[in-house]
Design a protein around this nucleic acid. Sequence first.
DNA 1: CAGAATCCGTCATGATACTG
DNA 2: CAGTATCATGACGGATTCTG
Lengths: 144, 144
Amino acid sequence: MTYSMHETSRLLAEPAMESDGAVATRAVLSRLGDRWSVLTLHMTDDGPIRFTELKRRIGQIHPISARVLTRTLKQLERDGLVTRKVYPVVPPKVEYRLTRHGERLLRFSREIVDWTREFRADFEVARDAFEARSFRQIRPPAPR
Amino acid sequence: MTYSMHETSRLLAEPAMESDGAVATRAVLSRLGDRWSVLTLHMTDDGPIRFTELKRRIGQIHPISARVLTRTLKQLERDGLVTRKVYPVVPPKVEYRLTRHGERLLRFSREIVDWTREFRADFEVARDAFEARSFRQIRPPAPR
DNA sequence: CAGAATCCGTCATGATACTG
DNA sequence: CAGTATCATGACGGATTCTG
C-alpha cells in the first residue's frame, strides 16, 4: 500500500477483504444490508421472544417464511448478536433475546434510519434526476 | 398493526417494506451491506477522483472489475451520495466526489467499523461456539 | 411449536473481451 | 480513459411440504 492508511481506514476496506480480521466487520455490515436482520433485532428488543411470536410480529409488517426467519436468526446467533435458549419441553419452546452487541447494532440502525428521514427529500430528487438522465440517453427527445 | 409503533420503529421496518417512503432507508442499508460501496465512498473522500484512479486505489485493497465499480458508482450517484462530472474532452475525463449525504453515510460507516474492533473478540467466541454446536448436531460423539 | 427439506427466481459478484 | 457486453456462479429471498 503506497498511501497512508490508519486503523479505521484499513477496517473500512474490510468488506472487500478476505483476511481473518475482516470477518466481523463484513458480517455486521451484511446484517445491516439484508432484508430482515434489522427488523428482527428490533422485534426482539422488548425482551425474550419465541419463534412463532417473532414470526407473527414481523408478519404484521411483511410476511416472512419460517425458512428465512430461521436463517436470519441463525446468522444473528452465530455472530453473537442474539442468544437462543431451548427449553426441553414438549411442545418445543425456544426463546431469543438480544446480546449487548445486538442492542448496540440496533442503536446504530436506529441512528441511520432516523437520518434517512432528513435525507429522503434529497434522495428522491437525486433519483428523479438520475432517471431523467438515463431516459435521455436511451431515448433522446425528438429534435425540433 | 396492533402494537404501538412510533416513527423510528416504522422506519426500522422499512427494509422489509415496499412502500414508497421506504425506498431511501432500504437503499442506504443496502449500500452499507454490499461489498464495495463503503470502500468506494472512503476512497472518494479526499476530493474529486477519476474512474481509473479510483479503480487503482481500490485495487490496492482488492481487485475490482470495471463492471462492478461502474455499477457501484451508478448506485451511489442515483441515490445522491456521489456526483459524477463529465468533462467533454478526449480522452474522456470523469470526476466523482462525495455529496454531503455521502460524507454523512461514510461517517456512519466509520463509527460502525470502529465499533467492530471492540466487538471482534466476542464475535469470534460466538462463531466458534456456534460451529461447535453445529458440529455436535451433525456428528454426535460416539457413545462410549 | 420450531423448525428442516426441497425447489425456484432474482440479484450481486466476477472474469473476460470489446469500444467511443 | 471510462466505460459496455457477455457469460458464469453463488448467496439471498420465497413458497410449499414435512417432522420430532
